[in-house]
Write a protein that binds this DNA or RNA. Sequence first.
DNA 1: GTGGTCTAGACCACT
DNA 2: GTGGTCTAGACCACA
Lengths: 131, 131, 131, 131
Amino acid sequence: MWFDVDPRSSVAIYRQLVDGVKEAVARGILETGEKLPSVRELAAQVTINPNTIAKAYQELEREGIIETLRGRGTFVAAHKPQKNLEEKEKAIKSMLEKIMVEAYYLQLDEKTLLALMEKTVQNWYRNREGV
Amino acid sequence: MWFDVDPRSSVAIYRQLVDGVKEAVARGILETGEKLPSVRELAAQVTINPNTIAKAYQELEREGIIETLRGRGTFVAAHKPQKNLEEKEKAIKSMLEKIMVEAYYLQLDEKTLLALMEKTVQNWYRNREGV
Amino acid sequence: MWFDVDPRSSVAIYRQLVDGVKEAVARGILETGEKLPSVRELAAQVTINPNTIAKAYQELEREGIIETLRGRGTFVAAHKPQKNLEEKEKAIKSMLEKIMVEAYYLQLDEKTLLALMEKTVQNWYRNREGV
Amino acid sequence: MWFDVDPRSSVAIYRQLVDGVKEAVARGILETGEKLPSVRELAAQVTINPNTIAKAYQELEREGIIETLRGRGTFVAAHKPQKNLEEKEKAIKSMLEKIMVEAYYLQLDEKTLLALMEKTVQNWYRNREGV
DNA sequence: GTGGTCTAGACCACT
DNA sequence: GTGGTCTAGACCACA
């Protein structure tokens, strides 16, 4: 499966599903138009209540990541221009600041941190290229 | 005040307090040995339930960021060697990956993203230098 | 074609068909006595499940908009006096109230809203005139 | 209560709740900052499952109509500038067209229809004025 | 077959 | 006390 769910985690299961799908799409593991497992199917595979899966799918649809065709199933949507661009850019900046704080307590110096970031970014784009 | 709390936010108020203090310490706004307001003082200033403040202080103490001297108050602790280094490094990497996903949906290209990161990092260290 | 169907929409496909035909008739695009495509024809054209088309035709027949002549096909019916006049007037009023609520959140003022309504109404009747 | 719910209706209960609250706010029956009944309270009053109420409240929060303060309850939010303005304007236009179609089958003439619209609009604004 | 909705009942974190 | 989440099981409309 293109994600894993930890029922012990403090983050809600449906959130883990949402993030998992978003990441899989971003990584190119799930491609536009590809069919997602049906709510019941997925529920059976990961032994999670169907309602929980459904909630995740609805959230993903609201975010425009997937779309459901009535009676046929849910599919990865074509990438639409995103809404709330500013909001999301703020979110990225705020995540970066949290990283800075954590790095401070880890006593990472500027150089090490930047190197880590560069490596992560380059890896990401290199892995996507092949898709 | 060296932080602000948004009761409308979906993140718990006590978490906002914890993060706020950690950030203030990391930024050098709160220095080692500096006294924090008492639970009651702070509760009065920001109109938050004292229990919530107390919970945040407990969490901060558990993380070794602050320490309570009985009868004297709570103070910013000296920076101790961190525990769970690996765990925290993982946390940073995981936050970076989340950033990658968000950046993907924002369609930031590699160059732009790296530039944003560098700017953030450099700003951070430059601002700390002066402290 | 005198209508379009969006499989991604949250409104049922058969409902979209029903509404589409009703609108086409009201606009004069489909005239009394005009033959509609057969279920199979239409299904082939718009790649929709024939059962769905059939359901829409049944609904339209029930509403008296079209009629089926056995072996000959389905045709736009002559306009009969409507049933449930009161019910439908209520429906219009209720739709108008929904518009008011939406307009409120859009902060449309009275004048703008009335102007929009007048324009819509006049356009509608002007376009019908030519038919 | 400032709304009523019909469990026999074909429109989902949670949708009726959402629309009811939106209308009450638009009409000024619910004012900014006013507290809504708690999920459990309301569930008891209208004998509807708490989950259903919660779903409605969440939808309303997503739309920015209400906001929840953790552990304290849910309140009518201050009116923020709306998002998706274009989308909503389209929605209004589309509702107006549906009205035109219905009016056609009711054989309302232009004058009658416009009069009805004007009356509705004026009534609405007159009733709000007093608030 | 699909997803959408609802109920009943439970547990949890937060204030 | 509040809302948030999850499970279990059920019914429905739609394609």
